[in-house]
Amino acid sequence: MGKTFTRPVALSEKDTHYCPGCTHGIVHRLVAEVIDELGIRGKTIGVAPVGCAVLAYNYFSFDFMEAAHGRAPAVATGIKRVRPDLMVFTYQGDGDLASIGTAEIIHAANRGEKITTIFINNAVYGMTGGQMAPTTMPGQKTTTTPFGRDVEQTGMPMKMAELLSALMTPAYITRQTVISPKYVIKAKKAIKKAFEYQCEGRCFSLVEVISTCPTNWGMTPVEALSWAETTLLPYYPLGEFKTPDSQGGNDAA
């Protein structure tokens, strides 16, 4: 019997530093599978963020750049503008993309940069040790909201997919999750679509992925999956918010 499940070529053989129960590994794999399937490994440049995925370049097996906190879309813009033949994607967390990098992601999307962004939203800063992110849920305890996020002081969690889909420039904007196999299959399809749009030179594409952070949530991996389902998904609905054929605005079903 032959092998039925193998490591994607686009994924390196290095062990990751991610915590048990973290969903980064799943998303890395999905991106690698898509790159293999599209046969674009030799002309792809990934841009790593600052955050838990700062070492993402170790886990893929193609060219990479590593940006400053929040600046990955600007780095990707620089690459794509001078080398439109290359496939360029950013891989960013919610502290990176939704806080310090809001200007860069909004303007890259609004310029219609032909890049792909994989946006990991786990409602917390991971690498710096579990501080509040713009995506942290009301009442959620983090190391900088020890009494729970007070929305009177810090506002409501930011819905980046919805925010970006309000821009008038054509784009593909979707929110997915990987907290159970049925969602993983859908997330893979979305990531593939996002890369295909780039291959066709059609539009900016962003796949937000609702993810888990058992370590900083103070939960077991199983508890984290369940908390994501019951707390995050009702606030962060899944679906396609924008496709290049829609005329701007939010067309999520």
């Binding site: 940006a67 600046r71 600007a74 780095v75 813009t77 620089g78 001078v82 200007a103 860069e104």
Partner: peptide, 13 residues
């Protein structure tokens, strides 16, 4: 800020 990193990206390739 963004321009600095666009330069980074272009120079990096």
């Amino acid at each position: 800020i963004a321009v600095g990193y666009m330069v980074f990206g272009a120079a990096g390739c």
